[in-house]
Design a protein around this nucleic acid. Sequence first.
DNA 1: AATAGCACTGAAAACGTTTTGGAAGCTGTT
DNA 2: AACAGCTTCCAAAACGTTTTCAGTGCTATT
Lengths: 338, 338
Amino acid sequence: MKVTLKTIAEEAGLSVTTVSRALAGYDDVNEETRQRIAAIAERLGYQPNLTARHLRSKFTDTIGMVIPRTAYFSDSFFLELLAGVGRQASDYGFDLLLSVQMPGEPEMAAYRRMVAGGRVDGMVLSRIMRHDPRIDYLQSVGHPFVAFGRSEEQDDYPYLDVDGALGIRQLVAHFVAYGHRRIAMIRSPQDLAFTPIRVQGYREGLEESGLAYDESLVVDGDLTQSSGQAAAEILLAQPDPPTAIVACNDLMALGAMVAVENKGLRVGADVAVAGFDDIPSAAAATPPLTTIRQPIYDIGCLLVTKLVHILRGTPLETDRTSIAPELVVRASSGSPRS
Amino acid sequence: MKVTLKTIAEEAGLSVTTVSRALAGYDDVNEETRQRIAAIAERLGYQPNLTARHLRSKFTDTIGMVIPRTAYFSDSFFLELLAGVGRQASDYGFDLLLSVQMPGEPEMAAYRRMVAGGRVDGMVLSRIMRHDPRIDYLQSVGHPFVAFGRSEEQDDYPYLDVDGALGIRQLVAHFVAYGHRRIAMIRSPQDLAFTPIRVQGYREGLEESGLAYDESLVVDGDLTQSSGQAAAEILLAQPDPPTAIVACNDLMALGAMVAVENKGLRVGADVAVAGFDDIPSAAAATPPLTTIRQPIYDIGCLLVTKLVHILRGTPLETDRTSIAPELVVRASSGSPRS
DNA sequence: AATAGCACTGAAAACGTTTTGGAAGCTGTT
DNA sequence: AACAGCTTCCAAAACGTTTTCAGTGCTATT
């Protein structure tokens, strides 16, 4: 048996309006009546129909997130982000609406469903593209969102970013300090927003150390381990191969380590390798991987904080935040050379 | 500008009813009209308000899940389960509504919100308790759900279970085959549904091998690593200490390994240790941990499949499924003794 | 004695959809 | 000429809330 406001109203001999206002805590209902209503609601186990409430009032206390359905959605990046987002959303009294979708049209459809369908108050985006249609859409309909990742093309939106350029600069400086002069980069796909930023960090890092940018030391990968391995093979087959390799993410760095070893070289001693992200298997690799740590879980929390402040109309001082990454030096970058 | 059925109806000079029925594909609207309506809807970028739809029709195409907000929700168990659930839900066209809540009353409140609030069609439960109030509640209101885990007290509900008794029996047999005679157990909390089942497996395993059940070889832990360590310390301090330890989960087993080493003994050689779950760090531990593997990701998928069939009114042959776990033998169980 | 203000309550509209139960206009049959 | 059956459409109700606006008594002020 379903108990609605009407049930309570009849039980109490009052109108639905009064019951609604009583339970909502308005001060224009007699304290005594309010308590009587509350008691009845309690006794009947009243639970408001949130769908109806959402339809009428404009908010849902729900945050939406669409996760690309790649080979595994169990990609630890998204899961960790999700953990942070979920944790913080819970603190603010929000639930999470999650949709796992194939990238492309199904993904965009999911955004439309959530937003135009009125199911969420705000969205959390990640894996921002250089030109991201999701941002176009959300801005065009004026729906609140925050993004993990800055896009150079469209940067007038609230985001949180890890300063990839800074991280890579630090890494290059670290390698230079260890005596490396030929430092290669395994680049991520060009359509990702962070790619040009990290590449820029690479160029700046070289420049700061007075090293020339050498086109042939930059090879493309697609973020998978196997692509990192393939890229490293190309690099190591060159006449004047690099002695250090910076990969745009850890997975590719791990692949590069495999390539180095297959070539009969020792990671760290002969060729230094580093990645970006600090995924769990970075520390567990042999040798452990030097990398630039992104605190994904914390980032998830921060994104929600930012979003909730926007939703409440009290946005934080600055919409666009860049946090400094942390260089984690491990054995894969070897030791200073003579 | 919001475009609703009304907008389209006015644009087309038709009633809202007809537009609704046209878009829903009913056959009592002229094909020509239908196409005209579809064209207008397309042109205006119509997106149905799902909240309104849910309020009227009884479906939400959403599956709910509540995750306990323990120290980390980033507990890899839940994240992996979530990955499987999300993946499979996506295949069936369902979204996921997620709520991260402190165990106890806030958790129950979240269930009520989702269910009585009409936000989800069905729920996925995990970490079943021996007597689980969530099951009581869901059964009392007659809301569809599936659970990962069988409860001995209330087992008339659809569940998927990994046969913990079988797993532990296999493990005990494995240890016996390796020459162990004093096999201890680090037990999980009594209020969890799987505890009595695993303990029963332990007793049966001993019995099958003609070994006596010795009360003093069973010590309680609370699933954390430190509790496993403490439990193992107690076991090893006994006059006639065990040569093999079975822990009810991997985390406690890892703790037990620490205790063994702190005692100056070698894991595998002096004391065999095994766990349950096969979490990622089990394989990565030194020595790698022998364990009973639960394919959490796959279980997530299967749970959703089961739930969706129930929702569609075409439940699978059997509501209650028990799958056999897989014994994964690694170095922590050592080698056969003479 | 009239009026103003206050405290409390309720009727009705609104949110955007789906569904129910016709109705209007045909065609064809008796 | 009446009726049945078909196709196509629509008005209105319903889902369960929240909100707007107005009404009813009552007390206090003039």
